[in-house]
Amino acid sequence: MNPDAKKILLAGLIFAVVYGLLNSLSNIFLLPSAPIISFRPQIALPMAVGILVHPLAGFITGFAGNVVGDAISGFGAFKFWNWHIANGLMGLIPGLAVYRHIRRIDTVRAFGILQGSIVFACAAGVGTAVVLDWLFLHFMTFPASLPSWILPAFLTDAVNGFILVPAILLIAGRIVLTLETRTILMITGLLIASILATAGSITWAVLDDLVSHGAMVQNFYIAAIVSVGLLVIGFVAAVVFVRKMTAPLAALGRAAEAVEKGRYDLPELAAVSARADELGRLARIFEQMAGKVGERENSLQRQVAELQITIDREKQARDVSDIVDTDYFRALKEKARKFRGA
């Protein structure tokens, strides 16, 4: 086995044990009737392992971890094997999206891919589990399982991953704080805070048995789904907005690179300098500055060219000897000597 594969397997198994223990803990101390979005932070573990170590390590953590958790909890190690695959996919998919392709999460685009892959992984994982159950296991009943099991599983994992994976990647240094990532993190934080407020109030209402009618519970489900939908829409809108805001800076960066490489006409700034705002002003000043630098550079190059003195030494020697090697010149030289001697 090659050393990389060994490392992946080892890391996957170690984190699987941790994940399994955490899973069994939350199975034992199950928050009573927290129906929509539960506190299940450990889901971030296979995702982070997939991104930071290797997608396959992420898969192993999710898959094997779920086996361990079920075994400890007394569910039977392979009874709900479809959920092992679901957890494996949640570790695998973000890893596939980010591990190799995005070494530095320093743009809104990269951050969007990260968060998108997390939500997608949860949907794909839960979806796979549901399909496998429907094909082979038949534990679930439709549509009764949808609000009681399927949706809570998806929403819980998606929201937990959405919040915690960026936090882990920030600590690991994989998310680099730039103007773009700072802005999107801030907006994401605000979105999450509003979602948690909704989730918290629902949970509190259910815990306190304020809501006993099935119809009201149904309404809360809808509220939860809407708020998670808003989270996704809000996030996408934020990505677009932040990119619009920071695109001029990226253009300025490219223009600065162009100047560094000695190109002083900057068509890439045309769109930015047409803006009426502060960035437009900055771009116009930058264009003027680049123009001045270009002029100075040209004049310097002219100077260097003018300082080149090339003399054809052979031609010089010929011309000199045409004059010096004549009787007239020799006579003149004699006379000059006499004048100066006198």
């Binding site: 090339t310 010089q316 010096v324 003149l332 000059a336 100066r340």
Partner: peptide, 23 residues
């Protein structure tokens, strides 16, 4: 003047003047 034609001609003038032993 700082131009190529003057540079070349001046080179000849300087050598000829040296041959004439200008002090």
């Amino acid at each position: 003047r700082p131009d190529q034609q003057d540079y070349q001609g001046t080179a000849v003038t300087v050598e000829v003047s040296r041959a004439l032993e200008v002090p």
